[in-house]
Amino acid sequence: MIRVRYFAGAADAAGRDELQLDAASTVGALKQHLAESHGAEFAGVLGRCSLMVNGSRLGDDAQIPDAATVDVLPPFAGG
Rank of each mutant, 00 (worst) to 15 (best):
L34F: 07
V72P: 05
S50C: 09
A62I: 03
L21I: 09
G15I: 08
L46K: 05
L21A: 06
D60N: 15
A14E: 06
E41C: 02
A67C: 01
I64W: 01
I64P: 13
E41Y: 11
P65L: 01
R3I: 00
L51V: 09
L46I: 10
F42C: 09
V45P: 03
G78P: 11
R5Q: 08
D66F: 01
L21S: 00
A29F: 05
K31P: 07
Q32L: 11
L58C: 09
P65Y: 08
G55N: 11
A29L: 09
R3M: 00
I64Q: 03
R57K: 15
M1I: 00
A14R: 01
T69G: 01
G15P: 08
Q32P: 00
D60Q: 14
F76Y: 15
G15K: 10
Q63A: 14
P75A: 05
G79E: 08
G39K: 04
G79N: 09
H33Y: 10
R48S: 15
A40T: 14
G78S: 04
F76W: 11
V4I: 12
Q63K: 13
E18H: 01
G59K: 13
G79K: 12
E36T: 04
A68E: 08
I64E: 02
F76G: 05
A35E: 12
G59E: 14
I2M: 07
L73I: 12
A8N: 12
A24N: 05
Q32F: 08
G28I: 11
G55D: 14
G9T: 06
E36A: 03
P75H: 08
S56F: 12
D60L: 12
H33W: 03
T26N: 04
V70D: 02
P65S: 11
A43Y: 11
I2S: 02
V27C: 06
S50I: 11
E41P: 02
A14W: 04
A24R: 00
L30T: 07
A77Q: 06
G28H: 13
L73Q: 10
M1E: 06
L21N: 09
M52K: 15
S50H: 12
R16S: 07
V45M: 13
H38I: 04
A40W: 06
A8F: 06
D17H: 05
D60H: 09
L19T: 07
A24H: 07
S25P: 09
A11W: 05
C49S: 10
A77M: 10
S37K: 11
V4R: 06
S37F: 01
E36M: 10
V27N: 04
R3W: 01
P65W: 12
R5F: 03
D71G: 12
A14S: 04
P75F: 12
A68D: 02
S56Y: 05
A40K: 09
G39Q: 10
R5K: 15
A10W: 06
S50Q: 13
V53H: 07
E36R: 01
Q20S: 02
G44C: 08
A13M: 05
G47P: 13
D61S: 14
A8P: 06
S25H: 09
A43G: 07
L34R: 05
F76L: 14
D66Q: 07
T69D: 02
L46D: 08
E36F: 00
M1W: 03
T26M: 05
A29R: 12
Q20R: 01
A8H: 09
L46Q: 14
G47D: 13
